[in-house]
């Protein structure tokens, strides 16, 4: 299987790019955290498609769960706007 032309891989890479741009461009920090969690899940799925199940596991556990919780906790201690 050539990963570069796998339609599933291309779809998830495209979703990752969309999520990354969205996370950078939204004004509300809480929305950015949620979109960043979605980015982490898509990248975990992409790793799993490539066969790196261990990396995908780590990305899903750390990137999507723990990092999002820490960001939310940090945002709760500040005011929510991006400026």
């Amino acid at each position: 299987m050539t990963a570069a032309f796998d339609p599933l891989a291309i779809a998830f890479l495209g979703l990752m790019i969309v999520c990354a741009i969205a996370a950078l461009s939204v004004r509300d920090l809480m929305t950015a955290v949620v979109v960043f969690g979605a980015f982490s899940f898509f990248s975990a799925t992409y790793f799993a498609i490539l066969g790196a199940v261990d990396v995908a596991f780590t990305e899903a556990a750390v990137g999507a769960a723990i990092t999002a919780v820490f960001f939310v906790t940090a945002i709760f201690r500040t005011d929510r706007g991006a400026d």
Binding site: D54, F57, A61, A65
Partner: peptide, 21 residues
């Protein structure tokens, strides 16, 4: 199998943090 001490520890910590939240 996929996994290990780091991932398992993260899952257990996520559970404790979920209850705490």
């Amino acid at each position: 199998s996929p996994g290990g001490g780091f991932q398992g520890g993260v899952i257990i910590a996520a559970c404790l943090i979920l209850v705490r939240l």
